[in-house]
Amino acid sequence: MITCRQASLLVSKSLDAVLTSAERAALDEHARHCPRCVHEARKLEEIHRACREWADESLSDAGRAVLPADCRQRLQARLAAALQG
């Protein structure tokens, strides 16, 4: 059976890619006997979920306006120049 260290690497990889059937079987087998790894996997999933929420939130219109006035003016001027050019 794989170790917790190997299982943790596979849990992490499963958040980014599809595991091979052998990897999935090894991870499932380990998880059946290791509540600690099941708990640790939930924590990595929480971090994963929070990151996605964070990115979505920063891109939504609900967040506070942060574009500084001088930066806004420069961007508008640059865009206007490009439109005319």
Binding site: W54, A55, V66, L67, P68, R72, L75, L79, L83
Partner: peptide, 24 residues
Amino acid sequence: DPATWVERHGDALYRYALLRLRDA
């Protein structure tokens, strides 16, 4: 209209860029 892009999207794009680059 591209002339309205800064108003429409500037804040959201800048907020995200700042989150990622951490440099104004």
